[in-house]
């Protein structure tokens, strides 16, 4: 079974994000970039499925050459090959644009793939649009935010946690599945893996190679302003004897916070 995993290079979740107001984007200075954590879960799942059923795992990213580091990491984890779809445009936040690029890449380069795995969303934009959009563009069944995945021949069963219950969805392959945390615990790379990954070539595919015309990749979304959320106000500390403090607390919750 051949599996394609789509990954994104994102700012480290621990990084302090600063906004560059001139370009209306995130300032990349001093920020550490990582493989998006949900994508990492998707890669891990692909590797486990390959270990159980054979086949190949191909990792694809759309972005500039900085994304090669992210792809190398996936190779170090054990992916068979990686492909970069080169896109020099800065972050567009246009999910449909990326979905169109990915869908075209699948049609042109990976027509015989039976499973397309995604993280349920990237961290950063957090839009969670692309898996569903790619599935629709390719007319494939899709299950999103999956916490357990079983594949048996041409069929799959995916578990999703929904409000107060567990949903089991059965589907036929090929299909799109997006990974939620908890689906697995991603492995640590081994040094052997890192060294082997260093030696692997990562082919770079251009929009031209995929037959994408300029109007197809023109962002339809324009970012007019990017701002940090307002700073949270400091909490209120009541210092007094327990009995008195409790009274003040109740008064505060009732009169100011209006919760009770």
């Amino acid at each position: 079974m051949n599996i394609c995993v789509f990954v994104k290079r994102v700012p480290d979740t621990e990084a302090k994000i600063r906004i560059d107001h001139e370009t209306n984007s995130i300032s990349e200075e001093g920020i550490n970039f990582i493989l998006s954590p949900y994508d990492e879960v998707a890669v891990e799942e692909a590797l486990r499925l390959r270990e159980a059923n054979g086949g190949t795992v191909t990792v694809v990213s759309v972005g500039n050459e900085e994304a090669l580091t992210t792809l190398k990491k996936c190779l170090a984890m054990g992916a068979d090959e990686a492909v970069l779809v080169k896109d020099e445009t800065p972050e567009t936040y246009d999910g449909l644009r990326t979905a169109k690029i990915l869908a075209r890449a699948v049609e042109k380069r990976f027509p015989d793939y039976s499973l397309l795995l995604f993280g349920k969303q990237s961290v950063g934009a957090d839009n969670a649009q692309i898996p569903a959009m790619v599935a629709d563009l390719l007319n494939l069944p899709q299950v999103n935010v999956v916490t357990k995945l079983e594949i048996d021949g041409n069929k799959g069963i995916a578990h999703r946690e929904i409000e107060g219950a567990l949903e089991k969805v059965s589907f036929s392959l090929p299909a799109v599945v997006s990974a939620q945390k908890g689906l697995n615990e991603p492995r640590y790379e081994t040094l052997k893996g890192i060294m082997a990954a260093k030696k692997k070539e990562i082919p770079i595919v251009t929009f031209e190679d995929l037959g994408l015309k300029e109007e197809e990749v023109t962002p339809l979304l324009e970012i007019t302003k990017l701002e940090s959320p307002p700073q949270r106000q400091a909490g209120k500390i009541i210092e007094d004897e327990p009995e008195e403090a409790a009274k003040q607390m109740v008064k505060f919750l009732h009169e100011e916070a209006k919760i009770i």
Partner: peptide, 11 residues
């Protein structure tokens, strides 16, 4: 037996 790598600050 092997050599595992933690690269990202979080790991």
């Amino acid at each position: 037996l092997d050599v595992y790598v933690a690269d990202s600050p979080k790991k």
